[in-house]
Write a protein that binds this DNA or RNA. Sequence first.
DNA 1: CCCAAACTGACAGGTTATGTCAGTTGTGTT
DNA 2: AACACAACTGACATAACCTGTCAGTTTGGG
Lengths: 228, 228
Amino acid sequence: MRRAERLAEIVEIVRDGRLHTARDLAESLEVSDRTIYRDMDTLAASGVPIEGERGVGYLLREPVFLPPLALSSTELEALSLGMAIVREAADPELQEAAMTLLGKVEGHASIRRRSPKSWGFGVYAFEQAKPGFVHMPLIRRAVQERLKLRITYVSLAGDKSERIIRPLQTDYWGRVWTCSAWCELRNAFRAFRIDRISGCFDTNEHFDVEHGKTIEDYLEKIAKTFEN
Amino acid sequence: MRRAERLAEIVEIVRDGRLHTARDLAESLEVSDRTIYRDMDTLAASGVPIEGERGVGYLLREPVFLPPLALSSTELEALSLGMAIVREAADPELQEAAMTLLGKVEGHASIRRRSPKSWGFGVYAFEQAKPGFVHMPLIRRAVQERLKLRITYVSLAGDKSERIIRPLQTDYWGRVWTCSAWCELRNAFRAFRIDRISGCFDTNEHFDVEHGKTIEDYLEKIAKTFEN
DNA sequence: CCCAAACTGACAGGTTATGTCAGTTGTGTT
DNA sequence: AACACAACTGACATAACCTGTCAGTTTGGG
């Protein structure tokens, strides 16, 4: 089974998002270039989206992993429930992802045979599309990449304000999403309800992890509040 | 790659939970017994928990599937969020499954490399362990296997009652779980809040899908209610 | 004890994978 | 426009691997 392992190894190497030439791969895997080209065919046939450009090299745009997982039926059930909730309770981008993921998993004959498509879950976590939800993908990206955002926020009292925030975490409260952030207008931590964010723009400005302004600091502060 | 396909096929066949002899497998896959024995070695080496007993046959206890999935990072994010919610919002059995599933996925080196362990999600779907939650696994099983249950229910008004129900679906409402069922006491559809089910027992009695008493009928009835 | 069926080892023959070589075709750079 | 680079392709010999056959051994159950 050296071949199968090598195929996995190629994906491992290429998924770092950088360019790799067939020769480099061939050297590090101790096979000939030709073998690499053949392997690339096989991978492409298996649906791995590796792109090869002549004169350039190979690139794996979409991060991919292919672990041959062994899931118990309870884990499969948890996956199914989780995706049902995400499909209902998250923003369109994650909804889409949840559905394609579930599709990939249920598409495998082994599962179709056992589950009559339904696990008996009903999920009604949300009313129809909440207003601020279109901004969720941007907010999530901002959290991950430490990107400052400029938002227009309408408070529960109805006051409109414009702020620069450092989004630290997105929070799910069962039926409501909020974003925990450091607010540069108030110079303090604030939690913004996603459905009350009417405008949201990328500032193209990154923020550093500053002592006292991290999500851990925020959570700690909240914990202390509850102690009293 | 006929070998790789055959290995997958073996798992496919054996995962029905019944006994299979090497000879039967060999016949249906059109190879010799010897090849099956060699394949079993390979599968065992790959970590598939197939058990073989001399004089008996092969058995796969834990249902398993091993689809070499290719997930996008967004799908991975959806999976992570979904499991975070399930870990917070579901019963202990599914919580456990969600954690082991996430463990299996994140355990794969390819992912560890990219995600700094956290996706920036905070999930606070529930207070601490709700009372009725211990019954959830039984209820889920009952839904899937059409098993009647005998429950002790405390209504919102505080009235205690004992009923035989035919559980049709478990419903997640963001912060609350209910069970949609046909209630044999009231002879009508009822939705029971899980946290108000104080007792729950298996009656060992199955129910048939009766016209007018299915989950589809219930959902239709609810839809009509909203029309008015 | 006997049977069934999992297991093991050896070897020949077939199939597949690989390396070598000799090209062609795009892409980016000078 | 010429050039370098690297993806690609085809052909063929050889090495590696897989498979079937056969002849056993081991283990659990009746």
